[in-house]
Every structure is written in C-alpha cells, then in structure tokens.
C-alpha cells in the first residue's frame, strides 16, 4: 500500500428488506488508481458503487473519502451511470448538460460555460455542443456524460458499466479515451463491468465480486505496462494469463466449464 487511500470502505453491508446485496466488504481505493470491479449481473456491484457515491446508505459499515466519513454524495466525486443516456436532460443542449454538472458550484455562469466547452473539447464533441442529447449516438451520449464528469474536476470518478450498451468499435475507442483522460487528469477511477477483458485492459487492480450476498472474493493486480494499446496489450501472454485467472475466480461450481 504505497499511495494513501482516496476511498476506504469498511465492513460495508447493505440489506434491502432482508435481501443482502452486499456483505462485509472491505476495500481501499488508492489515490490515482484505476480499479475495476467485475462480477455477474445481480452480484451487488452496482449497489456497491452507489454506496461509494453516497447515493445509497449502507445498512452497516463506513465509507471514508480522504479520511472523512461520507453521509451523502460528496462534491469531489462524480458518477457516470450505466443508463448514461437517461442521465442527460433531454431539454438541454449538450453544452448546457455539461455545464449542469456545475449547478451546485458558486461559479459564474460564464465560467461554467467555458469549463463545459473545454471538457467537450477534451472528449472531441465541441462541434456537437449545440445539439440535443437525443440527436446523438449512444457513444456520443456517453462522451457527454464523461464531459460532464470532467467539467466537475472531481478527483474521483465512478463508472457503472460505462460501455455496456455500445457497439464493439465505439467500446474500444471509448476505453482508450477513458485511459487518456484518466492519465491526463490524474483522477482516481472505479469502473464496474461484467467484461473481464475490459477490466484487465483498463485497470491497475481488479476486484472480483460474487453474488448473494455480494462479497469481494478475489483481487488481482494488473501489471501490464502503460500506455496500453488495444490489439497489442490484449495479445500479450500476461493478458491471457490474467484472463484465465479471473475466469477461474468468477466461475461457479456446477456450471458449464469455460476452462479445461
């Protein structure tokens, strides 16, 4: 544990009326780290992310951000939801949507707009600033959600299945885009996904979640060199070894074996 903890989860349990979604999770997210959480659908990984974001109160346990316990959504943290398209306001233009991320800040309107434009520039959507979200493709909507997160200049970015509903090509492009933004903005990022390859490609560390109740069953450090390049990185022998390790960690008994 070299870098200090940005987020620390201690003994987190979430009980939805007797249905235990998350049980006794201990997790430290280090400053500047890119952490991926993988697990099957319904294993509680989205709930865990919402607890980190202060959107859901844990039944038991403590979430600390930079050493201080959180009770609601902190200012220094931004979430990109799985349903990113639905998280954009359809009555606002792209640039207003991005500036809307700064609604709670005392900044002047003009300054908010400038920040929104520079974030849109960072994700390559400056030309689409005056369009409405529903005029954009899924990939572009995702970039708008990303730009809104960047405009806030939060030190922590949480993403829930960010590329799940995109076509394969946009998915790869946005993964690289994310890596580029993450390294240039120096953020701490947590990404929840069910895609093992995506988790390996992006992350410094992958946590494996098992469901009912949701627990973190394994953690794997990813020591692939950066910058990572789609075809080359994925083609390395270490990559396949990691994939194998994570498949093993994820697979359950009495299911069709994916490995021999």
């Amino acid at each position: 544990m070299s870098a200090p903890a940005a987020l620390r989860l201690s003994r987190i349990t979430k009980d939805f009326d007797g249905n235990v979604a998350v049980s006794g999770v201990e997790l430290e997210i280090r400053v500047g780290e890119l952490l991926a959480i993988i697990g099957r659908s319904g294993c509680g990984k989205s709930t865990l992310l919402r607890i980190m974001a202060g959107l859901v109160q844990p039944t038991r346990g403590l979430v600390e951000l930079n050493g201080k316990p959180i009770t609601g959504p902190p200012e220094d943290l931004t979430v990109v939801f799985q349903e990113y398209g639905r998280s954009l306001l359809p009555w606002k233009t792209v640039v207003s949507n991005v500036a809307f991320g700064l609604s709670a800040s005392p900044m002047e309107k003009k300054e908010k707009l400038e920040r929104a434009l520079s974030s849109l520039d960072a994700v390559g959507l400056l030309k689409q600033a005056e369009l409405y979200p529903w005029q954009l493709s899924g990939g572009m909507q995702q970039r708008v959600a990303l730009a809104r997160a960047l405009a806030r200049k939060s030190s922590i970015l949480l993403m829930d299945e960010p590329f799940g509903s995109l076509d394969a090509q946009s998915r790869l492009e946005l993964q690289d885009e994310l890596l580029r933004l993450w390294s240039s903005f120096g953020m701490t990022a947590v990404i929840v996904t069910h895609d093992i390859d995506e988790a390996i490609y992006l992350a410094d560390r992958v946590c494996v979640m098992r469901g009912s109740p949701g627990v973190i069953s394994a953690q794997v450090n990813i020591e692939l060199e950066r910058p990572r390049v789609q075809v080359e990185t994925r083609g390395r022998t270490e990559f396949s070894a990691l994939r194998r390790e994570l498949y093993e960690a994820l697979s359950e008994r009495n299911k069709t074996p994916l490995l021999r």
Binding site: G72, P73, S87
Partner: peptide, 18 residues
C-alpha cells in the same frame, strides 16, 4: 420522472428544491 435523472441531480449535489 426517471429515477436516474433524480439520482443524477443528487450526484451533482443539487438540493431537494433544485
């Protein structure tokens, strides 16, 4: 109203009134 929109508002630190 889509709960995702409301959650987005909370995440962006808006007050209940906002």
């Amino acid at each position: 109203v889509d709960p995702i929109l409301v959650e987005t508002g909370r995440m962006l630190n808006l007050s209940r009134r906002q």
